[in-house]
Amino acid sequence: MLARLNRKFGYDERSAAILVFPVVAVLLVVAAYPILYSFWVSLHDIVLTRPLRRPFVGGDNYLRIFGDERFWLAVSRTTVYTVVTVVVTTVLAVLVALLLNETFPGQRILSAVLLVPWATPSVVNGLMWKWIYDPTYGLLNALLLKVGLIERYRAWLGDPDLTLMLIANAAVWKQMPLAALLLIVTMKAIPDDLYRAAKVDGANVLQRFVHVTLPALRPGLMLVLVYETMISIRHFDLFLIMTQGGPGDASFTLSWLIYVETFRSLRFGTGAAMSYVLAMATFLLSWAVIRWLGKRI
């Protein structure tokens, strides 16, 4: 038996297998098992208020979700939030990367400062922005009043038209630095001669950006878009801390719906099914971005 294994897999493969076994084992327990178990849950009608009856219902949970208007509301809120967050994060990251890729006095310090929001824990970031937006002692009110843009204090997060954008703003604040850092690294790898050649060929600043920087940035942009989409579409912390889905249903996103369904209504079956839909959507979107940007490298 061992001899046959030896023949089939060489010595190197076997030592490699032995060395990665602990990691694989841990992953099986903490990742594969929950994933499979939650799928099993999503096929059953499990409600914690009647824990003993958990009949198998097949795809019924999924069908029920798609007929639920709360689900479609959450999809539209999530879409708006994700598109705004990803687009703003990416555009800002490109601009910041362009700025920090230049050499100027203070550039190193600025690069270091840039990473502070990224290093801030998500919950701290949420609390910080909640305070900034606070209707009675918030910084935003104080600032806007001082420069004369508003006449009296406002309850920013209480405005349903603004809530989602204000949360997106807090998310961008935290997520942009890492994206910018990734793009800076990609930019540093662009050979200087390319810019020199483009200058001699007659390209102005904008044309150099379009014809030299942007094509070289594509792998970095792809990474940023995929990563930011994955983060934003599943984002939960800020919604929990800042608005809990409100005011009304203004920030009622998919992750919030899943939380409510699972841990407030205790309907684990549909909650798990929703999680699976969200996971699939994330996967498909990432795949589309990779296909779209990846094939043209």
Partner: peptide, 21 residues
């Protein structure tokens, strides 16, 4: 004068071709 006004052409040791074109 900036380079594009000088009507010079340049060839580099690294070739400096645009990789995506």
């Amino acid at each position: 004068q900036p380079p594009h006004k000088r009507e010079v052409a340049m060839v580099f040791q690294s070739y400096a071709l645009y990789p995506n074109k």
